[in-house]
Design a protein around this nucleic acid. Sequence first.
DNA 1: GAATTTACCTGACTTTAGTCAGAAATATTT
DNA 2: AAATATTTCTGACTAAAGTCAGGTAAATTC
Lengths: 291, 291
Amino acid sequence: MLSDPIARTRRFHRAVTTEAGVLDASFLGRGRPLGPARVLNAIGRGISDIGEIRAYLRLDSGLMSRLLRGLEEEGLVTVESSETDARRRSVALTEAGAAEFAAYEALSDKQAADIVARHPHPEVLLQAMDIVATALGFERTTIEIVSPLDPRAIVCLEAYYAELARRLKSGFDVNLSADPEARDMEHPRGAFLLAMQDGMPIGCIGLKGTDKGYAELKRLWIAPTARGMGLAQRMMREAEAKARDLGIACLRLDTNSVLSDAVAMYHKLGWSEIERFNEDPYPDLFFEKRL
Amino acid sequence: MLSDPIARTRRFHRAVTTEAGVLDASFLGRGRPLGPARVLNAIGRGISDIGEIRAYLRLDSGLMSRLLRGLEEEGLVTVESSETDARRRSVALTEAGAAEFAAYEALSDKQAADIVARHPHPEVLLQAMDIVATALGFERTTIEIVSPLDPRAIVCLEAYYAELARRLKSGFDVNLSADPEARDMEHPRGAFLLAMQDGMPIGCIGLKGTDKGYAELKRLWIAPTARGMGLAQRMMREAEAKARDLGIACLRLDTNSVLSDAVAMYHKLGWSEIERFNEDPYPDLFFEKRL
DNA sequence: GAATTTACCTGACTTTAGTCAGAAATATTT
DNA sequence: AAATATTTCTGACTAAAGTCAGGTAAATTC
C-alpha cells in the first residue's frame, strides 16, 4: 500500500483532482461560464489565431464562434481577418479584455500562493511539484532557439553558475572563466537552445562559434528536477544538428571530471577525449566530435 | 522563474490539469456521462446510503434520483429502502454493476501504471507524488482507531521496523524488542491509531496498556513524505486524549537519542525524561507524562 | 478559370448538468 | 394524535456544452 505504485499514483490523482476543483474556481471565479473563460485566457496567453485556439482547447468551430461572439458583445475582444489569409481570423483583447485577463491571472496567482503558503516547508513541496510537472508534461517539452540574453536563458545560466560554484572544489567565478560573448551564441555564428515546458525553462545549451576551425558547446544545464529523463542527450543532439545546419564540421567542449554523468554521456554520444585546448582554469577534461 | 513559488505552482497546475484530462478519460472511457459514472464509482467504493453519496458528490437530490434511475435501467444497481429508516434508501451493485465498476477500476489502474511506467526513475516520481498528495490533501487526514492487526496498520509497522533497522547503529530486530501483544493495543486496554489520507495510511501510534500503573506509547511512525507537517504532534495528542478516555493517568515511552526530532517533540509536548524503566536493548531515552 | 479545399459562421438540434417547487412516505417532536 | 421535519421522488424548468448540416468567402489545386 505504501510502496504500490498504482495505489500511490491513484492517491495522487485523487488529491490533485479534489484540489483541481479549486483550479476551476479560478476559472469560474468571475461569474463567467467555463467556456468563455477558457477562450479569454487562451487569448490572454498570446494565442491570437482562432484556429489555434480551437485546436488548443479542442472546441468545435461552431461553439468557438459563439463563444467569441459572446466575448465580443461583452466588449472584451475584437476579431478581425488575418492579413495574410483573409479566411483566417485573429482575436485581440480590448483594454477591458486585458483587465479581465489580468483579474483571472490574479486569481490564479492567489490560488497558487495559497497552496504554497499552507505548507510548513514550501521548498520541499515546490521541488516535488517540479518533479511531477516535469514528468507529466515531458512530452510537451519544446526546444527553442533564443538569444543568450533572453531572461529565460539568463535564469538558466545563473542556475548553472550557482551549481558549478557548489560542485567544483575550487568554487566557480564566472569572471575568471572565458564567458562566451552573446553574439558568438547567436545566428549566424552559433545558437542558444532552451528547453521549455509548460512555460518554464528546464534546460539550456550554448553553441559558440569561433574563428579557430571548430565551434564549442557550452553551458549545458538541466534543471535538477528534470534530470534522469534523457533531456541532456536530446539537447546535445539538437545542438549538434544545429551546428551541422550552420555548416560547422567540428565541435569541441570542455568539462570537469566532477561532472561524471555528463562525462559518461559525452562518451556515449560519440565524443572523443582530446588534449586541453584552452587555458580556462575550471575544466580538466576536453572532448571533440567531428560532424 | 525557476525559484518563484507562484510560477512553479502554476506550472504544476497546468501540468496536472492537462494530465487530468486523462483522468476524466478513465471516468468517461466507458461511454457513460460523468454523472452516472461518478455515482457508480461511489457505490463501488462502498458508499451505499443515497444521502451519503449525495453529500460525497455534492449532488442535488433530484439529479441524484434521476442518475440512480438511469443506472437501475441499465441493470447496474438495485435500490431498496433501508431497514432502520424506511425514508432512506440504499443502493447495491448488481453483478453487472460490479463488473462495470471493475472495468472502471481497471481503467484507473492502467492509467496510473502508464504514468509510472513512462518515467525512467519511478521511485523519484512516486515520492514526489506522495509529497504533493500529502500536502494538498492534508486537511483530509483522519485519525482512525483500528486493530494493530489491520493490514493498513501492519504496513505502517513494517515501515517503522525497516526504518529503525536503517537508523539505529546496532540495527533492529523486532524479535529482540518487546513487541506489544495486539490485545494490549486494543480496547479496553489500549488502542492503535492510524492516520489515513485519501485512502493511504501515512502514520500510526500505539497506546499499550500494562498492569504496572502506567500505559505506554509505542510505534510512533510518520511516512517520510508526510514529515514536517505536524502530524506526529497531532497523533501524540490524539493518543494522549484516548488514554484519558480509557482512564489512564500516567503515560511512558522509550526512544533512541538517534531520533532527535522525536526527542525534541516529546520535550515540547510536556514529557519529562525519566530513568530506564525496561530492559529493551534499543531505547536509550525514557519519558513520562502524567495526564 | 473551374473545381476543390479551407476557415469560419449560422441555425437547428441534442445531451448533460443543475435548480426548484411540491408530493408522498416515514420519522420525530410536541 | 397532531404538527413538524426528513428523505426521496417527480415534473417542469434553465444554462451550458457540444454536435451537425449547410452556407459563404477566400485560397489552392487542377
